[in-house]
């Protein structure tokens, strides 16, 4: 990462929690900080319940109950979007500068409206002065440049496959050329063939300069390997490791990242003999305050010190790792004994 590049999104000490019915706080996003550069695709990897989807929602500045903001800031192109009024966010930021694509995005299509009427309604919301013709021209042009058949705008959502619906929603929600797109498991409801097509589309949006930066959230690591410049690994509400893709996938340092990467199963000759990791226990209860390393109870390298104090991110080559045992890991040459390249 050259330092001369512009920071597109700066997340600084972001904390958010869910309020349960009984009044407890589940701290799903706990002190997350990172920079997303212009022209960068960042992957966020983690397993269910690690807080990655919550992070995606919190980054948009829109906190819908029971999600509650606690502290921190999110600078989008230099402007802090935390604390802005919901209406201002919806009118000026979301869709225009920042686009959020959830797993179920395709369900956003109104089943009773043709795609084109849906697009017209949506864009009018952002810019009431735009004429219908202009909206349709813009849409057709964009569909063509993304090699999506433009005639689908005359169809109803029911007439489209799941993969096509997801592509349409992605194309439509980036019509205003948002600077940052955050895609949260955009393909996990699709079969592998549609998955590939949808991811190609996101990559195309990026390659053509329609969107400047992308955050890609998924538990499917092989996808991140092909799409991202950098990957952040999230565990129990925190980033535990962040660095360049190749390094994270093939040479993870944090013991949790190691387990995550070793658990990848792809249909490639050679994986058959591979030993899969088996972590003891389960992730910590985020309702209770946790002292020390959150992974310590499941970590084969944990020592007494790990549980004693708050563990910060340690710089290591071009990587940041939340582990005080880095030196020990580094000393052992074979870090990932089971992943074959």
């Amino acid at each position: 990462m050259e330092e001369s590049r512009k920071i597109m999104l700066k997340v600084d000490g972001l904390r958010a929690y869910y309020k349960t019915r009984s009044g407890e706080r589940i701290r799903a996003v706990d002190n997350i900080s990172f920079n997303l550069m212009e022209g960068e695709i960042l992957g966020i990897a983690g397993e269910s319940g690690c807080g990655k989807s919550t992070l995606a929602m919190a980054m948009s500045g829109l906190f819908l109950p029971p999600l509650t903001y606690e502290s921190g800031s999110v600078f989008l192109d230099g402007e802090n979007i935390i604390g802005k009024k919901e209406e201002e966010l919806r009118k000026k930021i979301l869709g225009r500068k920042y686009s959020y694509i959830p797993q179920s995005a395709m369900n956003a299509l109104n089943p009773t409206l043709k795609i084109k009427n849906f697009v017209i309604d949506l864009l009018k919301e952002h810019d009431p002065r735009m004429s219908k013709k202009k909206v349709l021209d813009l849409t057709t042009e964009r569909f063509e440049s993304l090699s999506l058949p433009p005639w689908v705008i005359d169809l109803y959502p029911l007439e489209l496959s799941g993969g096509m619906k997801q592509r349409v929603v992605i194309a439509v929600s980036t019509l205003m050329n948002p600077k940052v797109v955050v895609a949260d498991e955009p393909t996990s409801a699709l079969d592998v063939t549609s998955q590939k097509i949808v991811i190609k589309l996101i990559k195309e949006l990026f390659d053509e300069g329609i969107v400047k930066s992308v955050i890609f959230i998924t538990h499917e690591l092989p996808i991140l390997r092909h799409v991202c410049d950098r990957i952040a690994v999230m565990y129990a509400g925190e980033f535990v490791e962040i660095g360049e893709t190749e390094g994270i996938i093939f040479n993870p340092i944090h013991p949790y990242s190691q387990a995550l990467m070793q658990s990848i199963l792809v249909p490639e000759v050679g994986i058959k003999g591979k030993k899969l990791p088996s972590l003891p226990g389960s992730p910590p209860d985020l309702r209770k305050p946790i002292k020390g390393c959150r992974f310590a109870d499941r970590c084969y390298l944990a020592i007494e010190d790990c549980r004693k104090r708050t563990i910060g991110m340690v710089e290591f080559d071009s990587r940041k790792v939340r582990c005080i045992r880095v030196d020990h890991i580094k000393a052992k040459e074979e870090v990932v004994p089971h992943v074959q390249q």
Binding site: V192, P222, P267, E268, Q341
Partner: peptide, 15 residues
């Protein structure tokens, strides 16, 4: 063939 090609892998190019 298509299925195998469409599954993202680690060492082979995918996109």
């Amino acid at each position: 063939k298509q299925l195998i090609a469409d599954v993202p892998k680690l060492s082979e190019e995918w996109l």
